[in-house]
Structure formats: structure tokens, C-alpha cells
Amino acid sequence: MKDILVLRELEQIKAISHPYRVDVFECFEGDQPQSAKQIADKLGEPHAKVNYHIKSLLKVGILELVDEKVKSGIIEKYYLPAAKMLVIDKNFMQQMDDDVVQSLNQAILSIFEKISDDFYKAAENPMEYKKFIVHHNEIYMTPDEMKEIIGKVDDYVAELIKDKKGEKGDKNLQPYNFALLATPRVMKKRG
């Protein structure tokens, strides 16, 4: 499994932009192959539904078939993600036709929905989950300044992740969803 898979095709971005496929992708832990049945059990969903979405991710190279085992006369297929992390190619981002914009927006919404779900689950159990929230309202800057901030934070987080590689067994470490969200404030037009 690679560390990073750069998504260069619209079909790959469309495939991962479905919120349920993000859930399927996140069911994989480390280098442990999973069957559709194992993922269905984790998600509490029907096997057929999970299998459909696995096939969609497999078709575009986001998942890979790594093993087949015969169990009670049935062939059980085992999958792994092609990479630990998915990244959209920067050159692809410059091809901003309507289809690309719609797919990117859907991918962003899927990620945001997943992070929102985790946030609300943590908020409902404040004693069990420690959250770290920083909020700044109405900061005036140029889009280039915002890109610079996001780039610096992204580089710093990537460095932290690299340093923690292989330490998942450490009991002091726990997984966090980390999102840096900067949205333009949309004001209602006065009419």
C-alpha cells in the first residue's frame, strides 16, 4: 500500500465523493485486508450495499483486491486501499469545468459531513471525547494569504504524521479528524 494516491481522473473523484464510500474507505485499519462482509458488519449495513460501493472504488483504483479465500464453498474477496491517503492532483484542480466543480463540491461536502458527524458524536459525549476547537470570525485577507496559511498548517500536520508513523499501538495516541475550514462569509445583498 502506498502512502499517498494522487487522484488524476474525474471518475476517481466522483467515486470518492459519495459519503458512504468515504465511510467504506475509512473502515480499513492499517495493512489489514477486509472483506465486504467485515466492512458491512462494521458499518451495520447490508452486504450487498457495501459490495456495490466496494466495486465502485475498485473500478477506479482506490481499492485493490489483495486476496481470495474459499469459505464454505463461497469465494470471499479481501481488499485494501491503494494508499493510506487520497489527494486530488493540483493540475486537475485547474480544469474547472462544471462537471469538475460539481464533483469537487460533492467530495468536499462528503468530507465535511463525515467530520460533522464525528464532531456531533464527540459533543454528545464530552467526558469521553476531548475536542479542540479554535474559531476566528471575520478575518480579512486575500485568497493568496488564506492559501499560505492552509499550506503552512498542512505542512506542519504532515510532518507530525510522519513522525508518528508506526506508533498506533501507543496508548497515549488517539485518532483525530483534523479539518482546517476557511469559508468566505456570504453577506445578504441589500435590496
Rank of each mutant, 00 (worst) to 15 (best):
A15L: 07
P19D: 08
P19Y: 12
Y20N: 12
V24Y: 05
C27V: 03
P33Q: 10
S35I: 03
A36M: 03
Q38W: 07
A40S: 14
K42Q: 12
K42T: 07
P46S: 12
H47N: 10
H47Q: 11
K49S: 09
N51V: 03
Y52V: 07
H53Y: 10
I54P: 00
S56M: 05
S56T: 04
K59W: 02
K59C: 01
V60W: 05
V60R: 13
G61V: 02
I62N: 01
E64A: 11
D67K: 11
D67F: 00
K69M: 06
K69E: 13
V70A: 13
V70D: 12
K71N: 12
I74V: 12
E76R: 05
Y78T: 02
Y78Q: 04
Y79D: 01
L80E: 09
P81M: 02
A82L: 07
A82M: 10
K84T: 11
K84A: 12
V87W: 15
K90P: 06
M93K: 13
Q94H: 13
D97L: 00
D97I: 00
D98F: 00
V101E: 13
V101F: 05
S103K: 08
I108N: 15
I108W: 10
F112Q: 14
E113A: 04
K114W: 10
S116R: 12
D118I: 03
F119H: 11
K121T: 11
K121L: 09
E124V: 03
M127V: 07
Y129I: 02
Y129W: 06
Y129H: 08
F132G: 05
V134P: 01
H135M: 05
H135I: 03
H136F: 09
H136I: 05
D144C: 04
E145W: 01
E148G: 03
G151S: 09
G151D: 08
K152T: 03
V153I: 11
D155Q: 12
Y156Q: 11
V157I: 15
A158L: 10
L160P: 00
L160C: 14
I161Q: 15
K164V: 04
K165S: 08
G166S: 04
K168M: 04
K171H: 11
Q174T: 07
P175E: 15
F178W: 05
L181S: 15
A182P: 02
T183C: 05
V186S: 07
M187Q: 06
M187R: 05
K189R: 13
